[in-house]
């Protein structure tokens, strides 16, 4: 079983090349000048590359990127604020009603997004929150809370209860035990939950397109969507925007790979 099997590695590289081709093609187009994008034959390598697309993307989509960043960070904060105590209560304190809550969270993930968008739009309209980043943070958190609780709960359940009892004997309150003892131990799970929440909020399109009607309050997913609508032929800057919008995912993959792997392994409940 220690064989290197170069043929298998070669086959895997071919599979990977096919699966990742759309991403390569996006990066390629983001660097090509418009003259090389339109024509009868493809330009496979950006040998006469230009950064015009990126300049254009930053000037037209910069504000959308900032909105996305604000909304995503806000979603992470709100998600943790709700999920950490809940996971602790479920995993360590065996809170009454816990099983019912877990079941409700499982079912909640199966509600079709368009149904949530429909109802949240009406609610946001009543509260005057259309176009408010706060409404987007609240809406996006519905994508994150069930998953964050799942990841945190799975981790906190594995921490021995003696730790909690020892803290109680030392006179720590339950809240203090959570903040001073359990939170530092659960650091990896908290990071995994935060990374995924950030990514879910960053990638959200449905809530973004329904809860924002003004262009200046839209996050980058809607920015790209409206950009293709308006500048169909300007593929160079559309693709540059796409590359910039992919940066968080790339960072996540490179820096935080072990957390990602842990998150995926913990749960089959994420699309």
């Amino acid at each position: 079983m220690t064989a290197r099997r170069p043929a298998s590695t070669a086959a895997a590289l071919v599979i990977l090349a096919v699966m990742l081709f759309p991403l390569y093609w996006m990066i390629n187009a983001s660097l090509l000048p418009s003259t090389e994008l339109i024509g009868d034959s493809p330009t496979w390598l950006p040998l006469h590359g230009t950064l015009d697309g990126y300049r254009q993307a930053l000037s037209t989509q910069g504000a959308h990127l900032v909105t996305s960043l604000v909304v995503s960070l806000g979603t992470v904060a709100l998600t943790l604020l709700i999920s950490v105590p809940a996971a602790y209560g479920l995993a360590q304190l065996r809170a009454p009603g816990g099983r019912a809550l877990q079941f409700a969270l499982l079912v909640a993930q199966m509600i079709p997004g368009i149904v949530m968008a429909n109802a949240l739009y009406v609610a946001a309209g009543d509260l005057g929150l259309i176009n408010s980043p706060f409404a987007l943070i609240l809406a996006d958190s519905t994508l994150c809370v069930p998953f964050a609780i799942l990841v945190l709960h799975a981790f906190m359940r594995s921490i021995p209860g003696e730790l909690r009892e020892a803290a109680a004997i030392d006179g720590a309150s339950r809240l203090r035990t959570l903040v001073a003892v359990f939170l530092p131990i659960s650091r990896n799970a908290v990071i995994a939950a935060s990374l995924f929440s950030f990514l879910f909020a960053w990638a959200d399109f449905l809530f973004a397109v329904t809860l924002t009607t003004r262009d200046d309050s839209a996050p980058v997913t809607v920015g790209i969507y409206r950009f293709i609508g308006a500048h169909m032929t300007d593929w160079n800057s559309v693709m540059a925007t796409g590359v910039i919008a992919s940066v968080p995912a790339a960072v996540l993959l490179v820096i935080a790979q072990r957390y990602v792997a842990a998150g995926i392994a913990d749960s089959a409940v994420k699309e």
């Binding site: 590695t9 895997a12 590289l13 599979i15 990977l16 699966m19 990742l20 759309p22 991403l23 093609w25 996006m26 187009a29 990514l199 960053w202 990638a203 399109f205 997913t221 790209i224 969507y225 293709i228 593929w235 559309v238 693709m239 796409g242 919008a245 992919s246 995912a249 790339a250 996540l252 993959l253 790979q257 990602v260 792997a261 995926i264």
Partner: peptide, 23 residues
Amino acid sequence: LRSLLLVPWLLPLVVSGTAWRWI
């Protein structure tokens, strides 16, 4: 190679959809 295969899954769908629209 197996973890690199996950990259498409981590990208915002609007982004990969846009790449496909161009293809």
